[in-house]
């Protein structure tokens, strides 16, 4: 046996950046995450050539999953053209040779920060969500060891109490994005900072969702056809953002989650947050043949 037999042939960079041992660890942890939906699985979380907090968790999942035939879409705040989405897309394509797309329908793998696309994802698609803070209990328990024990005991009393106090104080649950949700009736998870608008899209979805927090070194998963129920009281129903009636001033699209654009001379206008849906809507309005997939929301209402 020689020193050489211990190592591998030199290459300037591993395929997909991560080396084989990092990928194996992530694969093992992803399988457990799928087997126990909503449970946060600790993983080593290697450093990647991007700063922590900028999608390094999602990036490690994507780097592990992709191959030269994986078509990748990357969005940030719903937009393909956001600088960080562009940066991540360029990196993923650069380390893998994988083709990229902005079209949700053409993507095999979608890495996203803070949004789920409006077009319904298929059962062959994987959605990778970047997660800043994987622990839904953090607002009531910042200590991770104690929070972990609370999950073990399914001890979500303080979580419920917090929601109840908000209703008493403000007349409604004040949680904006990252709405805590019960997965498969057992684990409360954060769906990542997606708006409340997007959480119902996870419930009994056809696609697989992997949520990964690189800095916090935790990943969790929502397999297809899995119950995802926002924590609500029977008499105070879950309420998504009141965007159903807004019309996109650029594309004319209506009934989707919107970006609010404040105007100099008065109130705001709106533009559709899913940028590719906006682009498609513009093309369609121009009379071009363009395929827009079925959307989760129709006329501003979530379909069953």
């Amino acid at each position: 046996m020689s020193l050489k037999s211990l190592t591998k042939a030199w290459e300037p960079m591993s395929y997909g950046f991560l080396d084989a041992s990092a990928k194996r660890e992530i694969r093992r942890k992803m399988l457990k995450a799928i087997a126990v939906p909503g449970c946060q699985i600790p993983y080593a979380s290697r450093e990647v050539p991007m700063a922590r907090g900028w999608g390094t968790g999602g990036l490690q999942i994507s780097c592990t999953l992709l191959n030269p035939k994986t078509t990748i879409k990357v969005i940030d705040q719903g937009a393909d053209d956001s600088v960080n989405a562009a940066s991540i897309r360029r990196f993923l394509a650069g380390v893998s040779g994988a083709p990229t797309t902005t079209d949700t329908l053409k993507a095999d793998l979608i890495q996203s920060r803070h949004r789920i696309p409006e077009e319904i994802l298929r059962e062959d698609q994987v959605l990778v969500l970047q997660v800043p803070n994987p622990e839904p209990l953090r607002p009531v328990q910042p200590n991770m060891s104690i929070a972990r024990q609370m999950h073990a005991d399914a001890d979500y009393g303080r979580m419920w109490l917090q929601l109840y106090e908000q209703i008493v104080r403000s007349g409604r649950v004040m949680q904006g994005a990252s709405y805590p949700s019960l997965v498969n009736g057992r684990f409360v998870m954060t769906p990542s900072p997606i708006p409340r608008w997007d959480v119902p899209k996870m419930h009994m979805a056809k696609h697989l969702t992997i949520l990964s927090a690189g800095r916090e070194k935790r990943l969790h998963a929502v397999p297809p056809f899995t119950k995802v129920e926002p924590l609500v009281f029977d008499d105070v129903p879950y309420k998504v953002e009141d965007h159903g009636a807004h019309v996109c001033t650029r594309s004319g699209a209506k009934g989707y989650f919107m970006n609010e654009i404040p105007q100099d001379d008065g109130p705001s206008t709106f533009e559709v947050s899913d940028s590719e849906l906006g682009v498609k809507s513009i093309h369609r309005a121009d009379g071009e043949a363009v395929q827009i997939g079925e959307t989760w929301y129709k006329n501003g209402e979530m379909t069953e």
Binding site: A51, R52, G53, W54, T56, D76, Q77, G78, S82, N84, R113, H114, R115, P132, R172, V173, M174, Q175, G176, A177, S178, P193, I194, P195, R196, W197, R215, E241, D242, H243, F257, M258, N259, E260, S273
Partner: peptide
Amino acid sequence: ESSGFCIHFKLPHYVTFQSSLDA
């Protein structure tokens, strides 16, 4: 981790902000 998280606040957060505004 700490420096990365600190500078990540430079990233756009308008979706989460919008969601809070709505509430």
